[in-house]
Design a binder for these strands. Sequence first.
DNA 1: GCATCAAGCTATTAGTCGTAGCCACCCCCG
DNA 2: CGGGGGTGGCTACGACTAATAGCTTGATGC
Lengths: 190, 190
Amino acid sequence: MPRAGLIGASVTEAAAQVADEISPAPLRMSVVAERLGVKGPSLYKHVDGLDDLTRRVAILGVAELGDALREAMQGRAGRDALAAAAQAIRTYVKQHPGRYAATIGLGPTEGDDPVAVELDRTLSSFGAVLRGYRLDPDAEIHAIRMLRSALHGFATLEVADGFQMSADIDDSCRWMVDFIDRGLRAAETS
Amino acid sequence: MPRAGLIGASVTEAAAQVADEISPAPLRMSVVAERLGVKGPSLYKHVDGLDDLTRRVAILGVAELGDALREAMQGRAGRDALAAAAQAIRTYVKQHPGRYAATIGLGPTEGDDPVAVELDRTLSSFGAVLRGYRLDPDAEIHAIRMLRSALHGFATLEVADGFQMSADIDDSCRWMVDFIDRGLRAAETS
DNA sequence: GCATCAAGCTATTAGTCGTAGCCACCCCCG
DNA sequence: CGGGGGTGGCTACGACTAATAGCTTGATGC
């Protein structure tokens, strides 16, 4: 019996692909195993069950989303950075719905948890968007949460076909970006 | 063998309770049956399988959320209506996470679908929030989507423990409501 | 009072995750 | 170079799930 040469990372990558393809259905060990040309129980030599595998996919998703955000925002500030971040999130959620869905519900993290460091890196991108606006430091955390809520909500509703009406969704995204940009500029400490 | 006297609606209600209690875990027929004092297969006399039951829970959730929104916004306008809507959504999602999660992913609906009429009723509440602002009619649909994205995103991130930092979440909600209110007033057709 | 329909049940099938235990391959080390 | 150990596959199994088939009994209507 020839060895498939699996390694932890390759199992996670295959699981992420499967999760994206079958989203919103839950990830299944048997499908991941089949994708890797291996029988189900073999996976348990590399990952510690379905929960662990899902968690690994979530961590991968957080890291990839953070990379996408940083790349999109490189060299941009203010409205440009905001629009780039929104577009990056929408694109990532549409291309990798399973990975992104896994990232939600990672729950609170401990300080030294590998999840926490990736999550911090990714969430700091939202703070970077605000760097272009001179906000009251006390307001920054609220602004980050508002930003994250709006972009997360928009992307998830879009991918879930939650927008019933017929207007163009790109137009709506631009409108929301402009709305937030105007609000943030109006909130600058004068 | 005494009859449990089940009716479709009571099965849906029990399933909704179970879904809320075990959220974010998926709904299971066996748990619903146990809750009703009945064996699993008996449920199939009342609902058409797990997918159908989940869909019924989702419809119930949409209807209840719409009721909660209308009640909260009664007699309010402008910022008051906006704050009431935000609070109503947050409360509903926290009290009924399973119902609410089921509502996402109902997908696009046909015109005469019972889902569509409840969904329209509920979504019209977001339009009602905007009634207090004199917006350009062309912008209204974008504003509705922005509003829904922000409130949906905030509530889901809150219930998923997605807000890592330590600032008070109620404060952040108030800040976001104020932010949107100021933006909408600034966008009024002068 | 009887017949019919509805609503429960048990038994079964197929599919899931996960564990136990086996076996062969590969590498390292003496 | 040869053996031992660790590694990574496998099959077999147990417990759980949804769902169907078919039976039986209770309730209702004529």
